[in-house]
Nucleic acid binder design. Sequence first.
DNA 1: TTTGTTGCAAAAATTTTGCATTGTT
DNA 2: AACAATGCAAAATTTTTGCAACAAA
Lengths: 162, 162
Amino acid sequence: MATEVDTEITHLKNQLAQRHLKLTRQREIVLDAFLKNDHITAEALYQQIAKTNAHLGLATIYRTLNLLCELGIGQERHFGDNKTTFDNVLHKKHHDHLICYKCGKIVEFECSEIEKLQEEMADKHGFILQNHKLELYGYCKDIENCEKSITTPTPAVGVPTS
Amino acid sequence: MATEVDTEITHLKNQLAQRHLKLTRQREIVLDAFLKNDHITAEALYQQIAKTNAHLGLATIYRTLNLLCELGIGQERHFGDNKTTFDNVLHKKHHDHLICYKCGKIVEFECSEIEKLQEEMADKHGFILQNHKLELYGYCKDIENCEKSITTPTPAVGVPTS
DNA sequence: TTTGTTGCAAAAATTTTGCATTGTT
DNA sequence: AACAATGCAAAATTTTTGCAACAAA
């Protein structure tokens, strides 16, 4: 069956070939693990891979993740904290996020009207739009799970506490 | 004359008093310098202050900038690279950015229609919206200045090169 | 074969922290 | 006087790099 992973692998192969870069086992492992996660950090991916596969050096994870970004498969994100997370962005064009300040929950959404307006704004200011990042911060109304799921009591980023 | 800085200082004073924190000369200096810049890094602010005032420790800059964020005056941003920049966000509600991949130019804009849609999206997903960050990445058509102003040939962040 | 990649450890770069001293309320 | 902030240097984090051994084209 032609899975989404196949598509990504193919894309990766093509991009690598174009640049005379090589498709290694490590790169496949990282890509594979990467695709199974949304917004994951290099460190987390490292841990995750360490559990299931032969050991890959953290430096390789970083190098590969950066490569994926250059090839248009991944994109860096920063959610409040200062850890860089990486997202699959190749087959998820409209990849915006809602983040809860209290429990850290991240919900993905898309909105074509917003996309359209972004295009207009870029045009209005003389830009050719290639990409965007939209993050909405707030509090989720999921009282039940919000408190429970507190991992790190995310420090408010520029939210008036009054 | 009642400048914008006065407003910010007043806000700062009030917020500090509320929390039994103190208004120090250093905090005033940082706030003052901070307000004169859009999206500046801690290091840059440090350098800038070093030129004009008595020397402030870099740690103090960081501490104060983080404080400003907690008080709702500042907000952290990450534009492509992994340096944290800080923005004045108190009196600029609609503070979105267009960033040129090639020359690094940053243009600020606002769009109330987008704001409204964001509100709707948050609501739709059960969030109470507090804040947002919107960054549009692309290439500016300012051929004249785009090439010239290259500071750091910003590495493309997730932009298909094909 | 040739050229790119990995792993490791060392190095960079960025941000935070401990603690004695100093300044504000 | 009490309590918080600063400065400095040391520490902690996060990410990158150099280089010899290794693997893919």
